[in-house]
Structure formats: C-alpha cells, structure tokens
Amino acid sequence: MDKTGDAQAEILARLDRLESRDEIRQLISKYSLALDMRDMNAMASLFAPDVKVGGGRSGRAALRDWLDETMRKQFDGTSHHVGSTIIEFVDADNAVGVVYSKNEHECGAEWVIMQMMYYDRYERIDGRWFFRRRQPLYWYATDLNKPPVGSRKMRWPGREPYEGSFHELFPSWKEFWTRSGPDEALPEPAPLETFIETMRRGNEIRGNRVR
C-alpha cells in the first residue's frame, strides 16, 4: 500500500474509533433507560447473544428473566444516572470501559441512593457494539436521609450492612492508605488506550453478576 493508501486507512481507522466510542456511550445510556422503564427485552438486547448470567446460565433470555425477577422483588422504581465514562479499545472489535453511576431506588418506605461504577467489556458483533460483561462495583447504598458514613456502606432495607467493591478493582486505593506519603518514583504516563488496564494491573474481582 502506498503512502496515500496508508493515510486513508489511518483516517478510516480513527473515524471508526470515534463512531465506536459514540455507539458505546449510547449503549451505556440505553441500558439505563431500558432498566428504569422495565423494558427487559430491550435491556437484554444490549448484550451479546451468549452473555453469561451466573449459576451456569447464559443467553439474553436468561439475563432478561433474572433481572425481571430482581427488579420486581426489590424495587418499586429506579433511576440510573450515568457519570464519568472512560472507553478504551483492546482491538477494533473489543473494548473496556469504566462508567460511574449514581442511582436512586424506591424500596417501599425508603428511598435508597447508591454510588457505584461499572467495569465493562464491550464487543462488536456483526458490525454492532454490545455489552460482553457489566461488572458492578458498589461504594454505598443508603436511605436518602442517612449519610453512609463509616464502614459497611451498603445498607439496604431488610438486610445487614456490608462492604461494597467500589475500590477493589484498582490496587492503588489500598496502597494509598498503607503508605505515609507519595511514591518516590513517578512512572511514565500509561500508553494510549490502556489507562484503565494500567490502573487495574491485572486485578480481578470474582462473584459479581452482570448488573
């Protein structure tokens, strides 16, 4: 390929990245709308056809049925507010993302607010972007009138408080509190498209479901 062809290919690749980022952002917002409006078919259609749900189950129908039961039993109403979002590409058809979400839940007589983030994996299948996985990382959940000060910030009505996993994907949180000051050596900036994975440093969290 000559230089003109190389330049055109580079422009097309960069344009594809821009369009893909926008489509993924729309995917994230569509998830919130479908979930809050309880359109479980629309919500399930945002995931890869063979999405893993847990308990040995997989597929969109299994995801739809699990979330239908979960939302029906636990919440009278919800509102998911998408915040800071980082999307980075593994390759042309795979990406990862971190999405902040501030949520409100009507739980009978209590109004529970929640702060969390999602660690997402996205995949382009047949020209369209889908969620491959959504891993929820919770910081707090508490009644609107009860600030979540102290430990065990996940405080749902009818169950014992427990710790969330908001900080567990990123080792820097614990490291910050185990040292008395800043690190002596300042590392080089993370390579482009690997900011999230550089911060994660291969850390994994097991057990959280797709929501």
Rank of each mutant, 00 (worst) to 15 (best):
D93P: 01
P161A: 12
H105W: 10
R25I: 12
Q115S: 12
S20A: 13
G59R: 01
K3L: 11
W129I: 04
K30G: 06
V96T: 06
L169G: 10
S29Q: 10
L15S: 03
S32V: 05
H81Y: 09
M116G: 05
E175V: 09
T70G: 06
Y138C: 04
C107P: 02
L169D: 10
A61P: 01
S101I: 13
A92W: 03
A109K: 08
G56R: 08
F89I: 06
A7F: 04
A7T: 07
S180I: 01
F75V: 10
I125Y: 04
E88S: 04
D50T: 01
D68K: 11
P49D: 09
I24M: 05
H105D: 08
E204F: 08
T70F: 15
L15F: 02
R124W: 05
Y140E: 11
K102D: 12
F130R: 09
K73F: 13
E19L: 04
I86L: 11
G150Y: 09
E106S: 13
P49C: 02
R21I: 03
E168T: 14
A62P: 02
D65F: 01
A34P: 00
G164D: 04
S58E: 14
F130H: 12
E10L: 15
G207F: 02
T194F: 10
P171C: 06
D126R: 08
G77V: 10
R206V: 12
D76T: 02
M199L: 08
Y31I: 01
E106Q: 14
Y138T: 07
D126E: 08
S101N: 15
S32M: 12
A48P: 00
S58W: 03
A92E: 13
A190K: 02
N103G: 09
L18D: 03
L186T: 14
L67K: 03
Q135L: 13
M117W: 15
V53D: 03
T78R: 01
M117H: 15
A190V: 11
V149K: 07
S165M: 08
R152K: 15
P136S: 01
M40C: 00
N94V: 06
D76S: 09
T4R: 11
M43C: 09
